[in-house]
Design a protein around this nucleic acid. Structure first.
Lengths: 230, 230
DNA sequence: TAGATTGTTAATCGATTAACAATC
DNA sequence: TAGATTGTTAATCGATTAACAATC
């Protein structure tokens, strides 16, 4: 049996693991069998000690004087992340963002397979985007159960987030990837991971503001060209 | 002159500030003039002491026995974030994600105004999405300079990320909001904030994997009972 | 005054970084 | 053997949490 103690890897470490996979795959393509912590760190702008600590957390041992086995490492990381066998997912909300995510081919790399989209708008239902059908919300629970879908990607408008999340939980969804600006209240038995654009933009704009503030007064931009209404 | 010491607010605090704004605006609509740290914390699932520490960082003082002044707080937070006067932004890459972001009306709330999109694909150039024009990359530098645009939103394919970032930096862009899966090398004088979907999905799927692993072999769960537990 | 709540100072916790002996 | 690199143990750093006197 495998060691199976993937629980309890520190969250910051888990967030860095995908970067390691990317770097290691490049190394693999270059024909490298081993990569040292300092090589990996260099490629990512990290410290080598942090790489060693992170890799220790996924349970791979390196070879002193040589480095870490690249192939083995990729497999171990993907196992830790649950990326070793693909998971099906439903998208709830076939708006701009939902259809964009449904069309993103890169998710396959992360073991995520978007099966279908759901929307409450009858005008959208029946359409096909990126080869995936938009289905009515009424069919969600039944299909989630029949197809054993455990992941839902939430891309509905902010006002509909809470209700959609409840419906998904009811339907047996175990993990919600929340792209809405709504912070959901905890739901028993459901993992919620939020992509918080406001938080990310807050970091960007506050740094920009302090940069501008440092170099002089904030100044209005020239009213010229298309100001374009939203 | 204003106090102007917005530098050095801790990053975790900055990430939480937008949530406070959301809660405070709701309080304002309910006619509240003041909100206590425990009220705010309760609405967000945080500890009151953390709220007080965060609000202290933006420089607003509360009133013992009463709470914090709601309106003043909103203004102060928005100032800290640079959300007090809107910034224009360009989108680079008019693919699914780029057009989705260009159509998201919620950004106005964060002082972000998407002016136009740019793409290197001649087939896309000339089209209009959500009332915004798709322009050729060749015009980027000139327009960025003329309109004093400092923010670019990067939604090109992974392979084009580095090149596009360099072009943006060349054109005087000061802040890059990077939605590509590529981790950019640091660029002198340019702030880069990345929306790392792989990192977010890693957290989601690893938690899901350990949840399934904990309850026995990886098995299609009964579409019934909550499996509970964090 | 009495109750509620702030803001400060100290304690705790967890992650990052440093140092270096062990090992290939 | 000599050089490179790991993994362990300890030190540092920063953020969160606790306790409580000050204050409205």
């Amino acid at each position: 049996m495998t060691e199976d103690r993937q629980i309890s890897i520190a969250l910051p470490t888990i967030r860095r693991l995908p970067m390691y996979v990317a770097v290691l795959e490049k190394a693999l393509q270059d024909g490298q069998t081993h990569a040292s912590s300092s090589q990996i760190a260099g490629a990512l702008g990290l410290e080598s000690i942090q790489v060693r600590k992170d890799l220790a957390a996924v349970g791979v041992v390196g070879q002193a004087g040589v480095g870490f086995p690249v192939g083995e490492l990729i497999v171990a990381i993907e196992k830790s992340l649950g990326w070793d066998n693909a998971s099906d997912a439903f998208v709830i909300g076939a708006g701009h963002l939902g259809t964009a995510l449904a069309g993103y081919r890169g998710f396959a790399r992360y073991g995520l397979n978007i099966v279908a989209l759901f929307d409450s708008d009858p005008a959208k239902v029946g359409q096909t985007v990126h080869g995936k059908k938009i289905l009515p919300m009424e069919k969600f629970a039944d299909l989630a159960a029949r197809l054993h879908v455990r992941i839902a990607i939430l891309t509905v408008p902010a006002e509909a987030a809470t209700e959609s999340a409840a419906l998904a939980a009811e339907a047996g969804i175990k993990a919600l990837w929340n792209f809405t600006p709504t912070k959901l209240a905890p739901i028993d038995g459901v993992i919620v991971e939020r992509v918080d654009l406001a938080a990310s933009l807050a970091v960007l704009s506050s740094r920009l503001a302090s940069l501008v503030g440092a170099s002089g007064a904030a100044r209005p931009q020239a009213a010229d060209e298309p100001e374009s209404e939203v």
